[in-house]
Structure formats: structure tokens, C-alpha cells
Amino acid sequence: MEHGADVIEELTGDHRVMDGLFEQLDVLEAGCIERKLLLDALTIELVRHSVAEEMHLYPAVREHLENGGVLADNEIADHDHVEEMLKDLEGRGADDRDFDRLVRELRTEVTAHFQDEEGDLFPRVRDGVHPYVLESLGKKVREAKKTAPTRPHPHAPSAPPADKLLAPGLGLVDRIRDYVTGRGQYPYPTARKRK
């Protein structure tokens, strides 16, 4: 088996990347195009991360943890809410009068979700799941992110087996759309300090 980060290390690493993207958003001037480009980059990361969790982490939570079904359902409900927020932001430009407020609300929601996972769910998973399984899940999550959608699809199924069947197809369509439009095919903007 290929050695790499286990599922908790992989997902926590994703959290730090997204925290960094939120921090970059904070220092960009309101209304500038780089804010929209950075939000697109953040959306890509959030959607890929969420899909990978729903495909691999949450089924393991259901299987291995006491009350795992309730825990997984709560996490998926958080994802559904975030996807609705991302869908709302998707059609807005950085100069939209509600853009900054919606980004702040998104950050609040996502940060609370990360804190809940890292403070409660991940320790439970670490204690309740064999290290070999955690390592295997880490590899599966890395693979899932390669084919996962890159755009919010709030009405797509988020539970097995439908999610595992549909996610790669949605991901392919999203990546084709991204290629045609140029979305996500640029380096992340470098944050500039506000004046």
C-alpha cells in the first residue's frame, strides 16, 4: 500500500489550505476581480473536499462509530448548507453589493464546520477506526478529489451509492466547463494589503 497522509491528516490539511484562501480574501480590496477569482479557487477546493468526505469519510463514520449515522447526517447537512451558499455566490461578481456579506457568512459557516470536525469528529474517528483503515481512507480521499466536481451541485445526491456513481460524471462536466471558461486555470491571486 502506498504510504501517505491518513484521512484525518489529509482532510485537516485541506482545512488549512481553505483557511489560507479565506485569509487571502480578507486582504484583497473590496470589489476587485481577484476576490472573485480567489472565491472560485476556494469553491473548487471546498466542493472537492466535501465530495471526498461524503464518499469515504462519512460512510466510515456510519460503520465504525457509535451513533455514526447521526454524526454523518449532521455533517452532510452542513455540507448541503455550504453548497447552497456557494451556489448563490457562483453567479455574483466581486462588485455585487451582497458579495462581501455572503463571503463572510460562508466563512463563518465553513470555519464552524472545520472546528466541529477537528474538535469532535476527527478525534472520534482517530479513536474508533483502525490506523490501517485511516490510511486507506486517506488514499481514497486523495483519489476522489481528482475526479470530484469543482462546482456546487446542491441538489445532487450526497449519500452512497448515488454519490459515488454521479460525482465522477459531474466532475468531468465541471472540469470541461472550467477548461472552456478558464475558471481555476490560473495561479491563486497573491493577496495584496488593503490601502
Rank of each mutant, 00 (worst) to 15 (best):
E2K: 12
H3I: 11
D6I: 00
V7K: 04
I8K: 00
E10V: 04
G13H: 03
D14N: 11
E23I: 01
Q24S: 15
D26Y: 01
L28T: 02
E29C: 03
A30V: 06
E34R: 07
K36P: 01
L37S: 08
T43D: 08
T43Q: 14
E45Y: 06
R48M: 14
H56S: 07
P59S: 04
V61K: 03
V61R: 03
N67L: 04
N67M: 10
V70C: 05
D73H: 08
D78G: 08
D80Y: 07
K87A: 15
E90T: 14
R92W: 00
A94T: 00
D96M: 00
T108L: 11
T111A: 13
Q115V: 10
Q115Y: 06
D116T: 09
L121V: 13
D127V: 00
G128M: 08
V129S: 05
S136D: 15
L137A: 04
K140F: 07
R142Q: 14
E143P: 01
T150M: 12
P152R: 01
H153W: 11
H155A: 11
A156C: 04
L165K: 04
L166H: 03
L170V: 08
L170I: 06
T181E: 12
R183G: 05
Q185W: 14
T190Q: 14
T190M: 13
T190P: 05
K193A: 14
K195W: 13
